[in-house]
Computed example of a mutant assay.
Amino acid sequence: MPRTNTRESRQQQAFWRDPALPFVESRRACHSRACYRAHSHPTVSIGAVDAGRSVFSGAGEQPIALHPGMLVFVPASRVHACNPAPDASWSYQMLHLDAAWLQATRAEYATTLADEPIRILDEPGLYRQFCRLNDVLFSTADSAEKETALIEFIGDQDLTHLAGIHLPLPDNVSHERLQPALRRLAKTPGADVPLGELASLAGMSRYQLIRAFRRSTGLTPHAWQLNQRINLAREHMRAGADIATVAQDLGFADQAHLQRVFKAHTGVTPGRYRA
């Protein structure tokens, strides 16, 4: 009998999606050593550490060490990364919720916050509730039962009384001046827009543009565009698009280029994510 690569067999990734519930996606990873670039996504994410040691960055200047049983709530569009500690692996769960759907759901019974903070919680009861929710999502239960479990979990979690990590707000003047450049990148995600053109649109020097971009978004202009492309790639692949077509449409040199950047942002290859 052929031997199985022990490291490969131990590392497991599983995604759950349901066309009937397009506003939610869940993920489980076991014994993962994959590392992520700093990134953001348009969804609200809730992560739980199941085992191992990991480090969260994006909540202030210093990374925060996480241990099993901790949860991290990250608002939409907030730059962050969570990676295993050096020379270690970890197991985790990650829930992604459509931001508009979540806001509308909360608005049915509570006041929503305009600028919610990142929250890192060590609450055993909350962790157990989150695990139960994910068990339902990954089960053979029907869509109605899964939606019920999700809404109940969200409704049970009144986080407004819990401390969060508020990050400094971007300078309003610089943020407004960046809008033409941001619109240019959003309108043509597959185009490589020269830095000089973006600087001209913002009325800044290239150096000023890079600094303003980092203060406002947490990323450089190039990193912001790559992040946008990966978010769009995920959206297109969830809709069934071919990986080679996605690479071409979003301005990647080829499918291999998409694969490298996609894995750096998500921890898995496009083929594994699409499957």
Rank of each mutant, 00 (worst) to 15 (best):
S54P: 00
S54N: 05
V55E: 13
F56D: 00
S57G: 11
G58Q: 01
A59I: 06
G60M: 04
E61Y: 02
P63F: 06
P63T: 01
P63N: 02
A65E: 15
L66C: 00
H67S: 15
H67C: 11
H67E: 13
G69E: 11
M70G: 10
L71T: 00
V72H: 01
V72Q: 06
V72C: 14
V72E: 10
V74E: 03
V74N: 08
P75Q: 09
S77P: 00
R78N: 09
A81Y: 06
C82L: 13
N83L: 03
P84Q: 12
P84I: 09
P86Y: 11
P86M: 07
A88C: 11
S91E: 09
Y92S: 05
Y92D: 06
Q93D: 09
Q93N: 11
M94T: 07
M94I: 09
M94N: 13
L95E: 00
H96E: 12
D98L: 14
D98G: 07
A99F: 06
A99G: 12
W101T: 01
W101N: 02
W101A: 05
L102F: 00
L102D: 04
A104F: 03
A104S: 02
R106H: 08
R106C: 07
A107G: 13
A107M: 06
E108C: 08
Y109C: 12
A110L: 02
A110D: 06
T111E: 14
L113Q: 12
D115E: 12
P117S: 05
I120H: 01
I120L: 08
L121Y: 04
L121A: 09
D122F: 01
E123N: 13
G125S: 09
G125I: 10
Y127K: 10
F130E: 03
C131M: 08
D135P: 00
V136S: 04
L137T: 02
F138K: 05
F138L: 06
S139V: 06
T140C: 08
T140Q: 15
A141N: 01
A141K: 03
D142V: 02
S143H: 07
A144C: 10
A144D: 13
E145R: 14
T148M: 08
L150Y: 00
L150S: 07
L150N: 07
E152L: 10
D158C: 05
D158R: 12
D158N: 11
D158W: 03
L159N: 02
T160W: 06
T160L: 04
H161F: 05
H161T: 15
A163P: 10
I165E: 10
I165C: 05
